[in-house]
């Protein structure tokens, strides 16, 4: 099958790879570029564990064609930390016990990051709405909501 070249900026670095025409961004990131932060949960856009940012907007990478990301900025949870320093959302998730098995965590963090970038002081309802596309099967939503609200209140939150 003919491969298509695709180039985009991933977490601040320019990356290029070859993909099948119909290959989704999730597979390209995981199998092509070795970024395992976005996960496969359903492949149907219902669980949110594959959430990434494309030009700052949350996207479900399992429903996004890799070739559609040509020339764009793709960000995953792998790129959230500033070197050895945790992003305020990461620190808040740790402080609030906002991860159990950890499988939904990268997607949750990414959805929360998109929210805070647009709305640095969200209400609880806005937080709930922002993560409504992300399923936590361990059902730990309350600590996650508390962590996002706490990160929003912290001084460094606007960095997101």
């Amino acid at each position: 099958m003919a491969k298509h070249p695709v180039q985009f900026r991933l977490n601040g670095s320019d990356r290029a790879t070859f993909v099948d025409g119909a290959e989704n961004l999730l597979n390209t990131l995981r199998r092509g570029l070795g970024d395992f932060a976005p996960k496969y949960g359903c492949g149907q856009g219902t669980c949110g564990v594959c959430t990434v940012l494309v030009d700052g907007e949350p996207h479900l990478s399992c429903l996004t064609l890799a070739v559609a990301c040509e020339g764009r900025h793709v960000e995953t949870a792998s790129g959230m930390a500033d070197g050895p320093d945790f992003h305020p959302l990461q620190a808040a998730f740790m402080d609030h016990f906002a991860a159990q098995c950890g499988f939904c965590t990268p997607g949750m963090l990414t959805a929360a990051r998109a929210l805070l970038a647009k709305n640095p002081n969200p209400t609880r309802d806005e937080v709930v709405e922002a993560i409504s596309g992300n399923i936590c099967r361990c059902t730990g939503y309350e600590p996650i909501i508390a962590a996002i609200l706490a990160a929003a209140g912290s001084s460094g939150a606007r960095r997101a």
Binding site: A37, Y40, A77, S78, F86, F93, M94, G102, F103, L109
Partner: peptide, 25 residues
């Protein structure tokens, strides 16, 4: 008390079974 797996979870460094690359998979 902080869980030891928590930093891995929030940085996405935690490796689940499918998070491993192999040539010729």
């Amino acid at each position: 008390s902080q869980r030891q797996d928590m930093p891995g979870h929030v940085t996405a460094r935690t490796r689940f079974f499918d998070d491993h690359a192999f040539d010729g998979l």
